[in-house]
Design a protein around this nucleic acid. Sequence first.
DNA 1: ATGACTCCCAGTGGGAGA
Length: 255
Amino acid sequence: MKLATWNVNSLAVRLPQLLDWLAVQQPEVLVLQETKLTDDKFPHAAITAAGWHSVWFGQKTYNGVALLSRSEPIDVVRNLPGFDDPQARVIAATVDGVRVIGAYFPNGQAPGTDKFAYKMAWLDALQAFVAAELARHPRLVLMGDYNIAPEDRDVFDPVAWAGQIHCTDEERAHFRALCGLGLVDAFRLFEQPVKSWSWWDYRNLAFRKNQGLRIDHILVSEALKPQVAACLIDKLPRKNERPSDHAPVLVELTG
DNA sequence: ATGACTCCCAGTGGGAGA
């Protein structure tokens, strides 16, 4: 069973690339972030025609998430229950007995700003939600654009980025707290190439120079950990014309 | 170097992203 996450940075722009990628990779489940579409504009028909179920939760201009799956998704949850939020950032569903939470974590802009405070409050609410979901669904995957680089080895220039957004102690503590609920970073279960990133700035020829961050993650529960056979970042879509600034991350579960 | 690029909504520029 292959599951994946991809921040597409506008599904309206990236739909052809998404359909191409689905045809090649054939994931059982894919969660999307930054669809930037109101629900009435979600390209449901094209995705259905390609052979995937889809559920979605979006808004105008910013944010927006979706979950695509080969099997029908059930028990769909949109956003964090009890956390009143005008921003569309979370979609969860059960697919083939696996609870999948897809999330677009807030950017946070910079420490000390209102947006950073929002990120911290959102992370508190996410942690409570994941804990409750784990209690009901031991077989669980939390994946998406975390906007957190967990360790210095996830940053191309850790000295320049020290204390900057995505790399602050507060954000990294939240990442570790999520792991403390009984989740593990699937990517780090395997030997990986050094300088593995999931995002590269559009500016400065960053992709060509491989200057990026690893901020898109797949965390799996302890119950699923023995089934994790592989986890990788697919850099190919970043080489497309008009690419998203993020690459998809995939995990393969046996059985 | 408070930049660089891309997307969006707007409207002939500006905010946000990371």
